[in-house]
Nucleic acid binder design. Structure first.
Length: 559
DNA sequence: GGAGACGGCGCC
DNA sequence: AAAGGGCGCCGTCTCC
């Protein structure tokens, strides 16, 4: 390893790895541009590293290698931070490769660690020390020679293992397709997301209300209500004393079990506390304190591939699990003069079930514009009698593609086991194509050890586990295909709007934008176009896409 | 005092 | 025997 302090010399570079270090980043907000520039390392050959320590040299250094393929491990991090010092325009898929995202495309479900050090170990057989990284968290730190070699080492490793990744990519054209048409474009889109405006007062009031409930309930209780262990012990003891076997022999206190016992005041107290506690903590003042920035907005970190299936995830804060109640959604708002546009794919996963299985009954239902859950409910009611129940239809449809057992469906719906078995049998009789698809998926998974989405994303499954052979082969490609679709839509929208893309959030099948009132009409039209285009791109048009868009002052707006 | 496992629960 | 898939975050508890 040769470290050269200064710019890479002028010349023509084929591929460079790039890594950025910053001082004094907040552990909870690594994705936010903050802290003090540490260094930029650029490696063009796996041997030499050019080390830039002055932020005024960043732009010049990147310009020198502009025509090369850039490799970054977690490019979102580097680009977000480097953009403080120089504009980095979106690059073509072959001009920016994120070795982290590529690794997830290649090995999602097979490995579960994807850090730079993990790849160095897997591909290069090198075990690395991580202690030096901590020194960068010191806001007043100075760049020691040890820290320089640490940074340089990361750049070298990235350059080297990206070569190994390239060989896998050459053997697997679908993986490159996913990068170049789905994950790569989505990455650039997410990098340009705007913050989501929060009604801080409203949020704080909810937090306060729930904190008060917690305090009140805890005050009249002798044991710690927030301790599952103590709660279980108390319920067991109470059950023994009062001769209530359901409590005496309870072995879990989760809501699914306690719900049936909520007539007992003690149980009701526990459930009420849990509800308020969740809201007072996960959705409490801490969200404001830790994440609302000076402009009154939160900037969640959207992970392009958070899940094995290819789904995105969100953190710091997680925008994807905000309570769906209007009270909470109403705290997420548009600024004065703006409106939110809230778009979601209608029945995204069921449509993909239809597209993958090619079940003619299901496809026809979508072609006729039917409400699929109602269709399922009606088919079942026709066979088994009774009135069509949409909720039941939805549960049944989800259950079938999640590989739920009859016991599971019975528990979920409150049906008897026998009714539940009948219903599943009848469902698969009516949707025989779906049934055949479930069989073939399981066989494929057993044979290959993976399954694929319609777009070609590979999801490895564990052939030695129940989950890997029964449920993942069904759920994986549907959930993953849905993710492909949404991410593709983000990419298409970004292609149209570029850096000015007005998005503030994405929640699996839902895209939220904040738009000037005067721009709403054309924007909504464009959004719908991109989402439907992504849908056809994925399914080849076998099933019509469906998108719902409505606008309003807050996220609670109803269509 | 920090790390990690675990129970629990919010969302799609 | 069998209680659906995918996440992230909270508090508690244990371990080092």
């Amino acid at each position: 390893m040769r470290i050269v302090e200064g710019l890479p010399p002028k010349g023509s570079y084929h591929k460079v790895s790039i890594d950025t270090e910053l001082f004094g980043l907040n552990q909870k907000k690594l994705h936010r541009p903050a802290g003090r520039f540490g260094c930029l390392t650029i490696c063009p050959d796996g041997k030499t590293v050019y080390l830039i320590t002055k932020d005024s040299d960043i732009e010049k250094a990147l310009n020198r290698v502009d025509r090369a393929r850039w490799v970054m491990h977690n490019a979102a991090f580097d680009i977000r931070h480097l953009r403080r010092w120089t504009d980095i325009a979106p690059r073509k898929p072959d001009k920016l490769v994120d070795s982290l995202l590529i690794e997830r495309i290649l090995w999602g479900g097979y490995y579960d660690t994807f850090a730079l050090d993990d790849l160095a170990r897997r591909y290069l057989g090198i075990k690395t020390e991580k202690e030096t990284r901590k020194a960068f968290f010191d806001p007043d730190g100075v760049l020691t020679s040890q820290m320089k070699s640490y940074a340089a080492r990361d750049a070298i490793h990235t350059w080297k293992f990206s070569g190994s990744q390239e060989r896998f990519l050459e053997k697997d054209p679908d993986a490159w397709k996913i990068w170049s048409e789905v994950d790569g474009p989505a990455l650039w889109a997410v990098l340009d997301f705007k913050g989501f405006k929060v009604d801080v007062k409203k949020w704080a009031a909810l937090a306060k209300k729930n904190a008060a409930i917690c305090e009140e309930l805890q005050a009249k209780t002798k044991f710690k209500l927030s301790s599952p262990k103590q709660v279980l012990a108390e319920l067991n003891a109470f059950g023994k004393k009062k001769n209530i076997p359901a409590l005496e022999f309870l072995d879990s206190t989760n809501a699914a079990y306690l719900d049936e016992l909520r007539d007992i005041p003690l149980v009701a107290t526990i459930l009420a506390f849990r509800d308020a506690h969740k809201r007072a903590t996960t959705y409490g003042d801490n969200v404001i304190r830790d994440f609302v920035e000076d402009d009154g907005r939160i900037y969640p970190s959207f992970n392009i591939t958070g899940a094995e299936t290819g789904r995105m995830s969100s953190s710091s804060p997680n925008l994807q699990n905000i309570p769906a109640e209007a009270d909470y959604r109403a705290c997420y708002i548009a600024d004065i003069g703006n409106l939110l546009a809230i778009a979601d794919y209608k029945a995204q996963e069921p449509r993909l079930t239809a597209a993958m299985s090619k079940d003619p009954v299901m496809i026809e239902a979508f072609e006729n514009g039917e409400d699929i859950h109602m269709t399922v409910a009606r088919e079942i009611a026709n066979a088994l009698g009774g009135e069509p129940d949409r909720k039941l239809g939805k549960a049944m449809g989800l259950a079938s593609t999640y590989g739920m057992s009859a016991q599971g469906l019975a528990a979920k719906t409150g049906m008897s086991l026998r009714d539940s078995e009948n219903m599943i049998r009848e469902y698969f009789r009516r949707f025989a194509g779906v049934y055949r698809w479930t069989i073939s998926q399981k066989a494929f998974a057993l044979q290959h050890g993976y399954v694929v989405t319609l777009a070609g994303r590979k999801i490895w499954v564990n052939p030695h586990s129940r989950q890997g052979t029964t449920t993942n082969p069904l759920n994986g490609p549907i959930q993953g295909g849905a993710a492909d679709q949404t991410k593709r839509a983000l990419g298409l929208l970004h292609k149209h709007y570029g850096r000015k893309i007005p998005l503030v959030g994405v929640i699996h099948d839902e895209i939220v934008a904040e738009v000037k009132k005067s721009d709403v009409k054309p924007f909504v039209k464009q959004l719908e176009k991109c989402m439907l285009e992504a849908s056809d791109w994925l399914t080849g048009g076998i099933v019509p896409g469906g998108v719902d868009i409505h606008t309003g002052k807050s996220w609670a707006a109803k269509g």
